[in-house]
Simulated assay, not measured.
Amino acid sequence: MSELKQVIIVRRRKNRGSGHHGGAWKVAYADFVTAMMAFFLVMWLVGAGTKQQRAAISEYFRNPSMTQGQSTMAPSGRTGPGGASTSMIKLGGAMNLPTGPGKESAFAPPSAEEAEKLAKEKEKKRLEQLMKDLNEAIAKSQAMAPFRDQLLLDITSEGLRIQIVDKQNRPMFDMGSGALKSYTVQILHELAGFVNQVPNQISISGHTDSAPYVRADSQYGNWELSADRANAARRTLTDGGMQAAKVARVVGLAASVPFDKNDPSAAINRRISIVVMTEQAARAALSSELVSAPRALPSVPVLHPAEPGHAGAGVPAAPASHAAEVSTRESAAPPPAPPRAPI
């Protein structure tokens, strides 16, 4: 009888749960990301800290104990050189990091000077943008095309200045009058909408040339004419939709500020100047400090003639003959000259 052989079957289970290379790459990638984050954090701290802080951090890693180290610069929180800092670590992140010597946090509220500087820069950009918009509108407008050479724009210390100047054959006003031409009204109505785009206040000034202007009453000249024209421009801007409260100043300057200094009688000197003022210029124009407080004139003692028998009488009265002489001179004074005829 043959001997039976025992058959042994070995079954091997294949591990199908893990992919290629298993999950070890995830651990390596996580370590890499952690290392890079730490590296960039160190670089940020080095760039954000001051020279004194970097020296203190360097000395801390060389000598983390509380004993005195060899650093030539004292770390934050200690008065002596070297050694670890005894102050608590602030956990506020960048809110607690100074940006430089003598400065507070980068996120600390700006000082009054810094805030004023930022406001001026913002205002300057706003006026420059308004000037750009105006130039583009003038270039595209068919209605204003004939008057492009009479509109002059520039930035001054007071703000954005818009000047509407006369030309020899195209005046803005009627001759010797404050009445505006129809095209001048159209120009000012167009400008009113742009002036409303910014919160700045405006100043309007009228200018004439050096030619003398005299009316029959002899009390009306270039000063009055320039002021009337500036005020007429103000009314027209308001009619065009500009807010009336934006006007801070309306002045007439006659021929005192010529555009063409070499030729004071040139037509270009007859102009209207509209300045979109900066906040500082507006404050100066409206400041009560520019107007001195009214002061009473010194009292002048009234001298009366001495009365007979009155002790301590004032200056004695003038003799009768002297009074008569004064009266004769006054009555003989020539009459005033008649007013000049208008030119």
Rank of each mutant, 00 (worst) to 15 (best):
F39S: 12
F39P: 00
F40W: 12
L41V: 06
V42M: 13
V42I: 15
W44I: 14
V46S: 13
G47C: 08
G49N: 15
K51T: 09
Q52W: 00
Q52M: 08
Q52K: 11
R54H: 05
A56I: 06
I57L: 15
S58H: 09
S58T: 07
E59D: 15
Y60M: 10
Y60R: 07
Y60E: 11
F61T: 12
R62D: 09
N63Y: 03
P64I: 03
S65N: 06
M66L: 13
T67R: 13
T67S: 12
G69S: 00
G69Q: 01
G69Y: 05
Q70L: 10
Q70E: 13
T72M: 11
T72C: 00
M73A: 10
A74Y: 00
P75Y: 01
G77P: 04
G77T: 05
G77L: 04
G77W: 03
T79L: 12
G80F: 09
G83D: 02
A84C: 06
S87V: 09
S87F: 06
M88H: 12
I89P: 09
I89A: 14
I89K: 14
K90M: 12
K90R: 14
G92H: 02
G92T: 05
G93T: 06
G93H: 02
A94Q: 09
N96E: 14
N96Q: 12
N96D: 13
L97K: 12
P98T: 00
P98H: 06
P98K: 08
G100C: 03
G102I: 03
G102N: 04
G102K: 04
G102P: 04
G102T: 04
G102C: 02
G102E: 03
K103C: 12
S105T: 00
S105L: 02
S105H: 01
A106M: 14
F107S: 08
A108F: 03
S111I: 03
A112N: 11
E113C: 05
E114R: 15
A115W: 07
E116S: 14
E116V: 09
E116R: 15
L118V: 11
L118A: 15
A119T: 03
A119I: 02
K120S: 11
K120H: 10
K124E: 14
K124V: 03
R126A: 12
R126T: 08
R126H: 08
E128S: 06
E128V: 07
E128C: 07
Q129A: 15
L130W: 04
L130E: 04
D133Y: 02
D133H: 08
L134T: 01
A137D: 14
A137W: 04
I138L: 05
I138F: 01
I138M: 07
I138T: 02
I138R: 02
A139P: 01
K140Q: 14
S141W: 00
Q142F: 05
A143V: 13
M144L: 13
A145R: 13
A145S: 14
D149Y: 04
Q150F: 03
Q150G: 00
L152I: 10
L153T: 03
D154Y: 11
I155D: 07
T156Y: 05
T156Q: 08
S157N: 13
S157H: 12
E158T: 09
R161W: 02
R161A: 05
R161P: 00
Q163M: 12
I164D: 06
D166G: 11
K167Y: 05
K167A: 08
Q168A: 14
N169E: 14
F173Q: 08
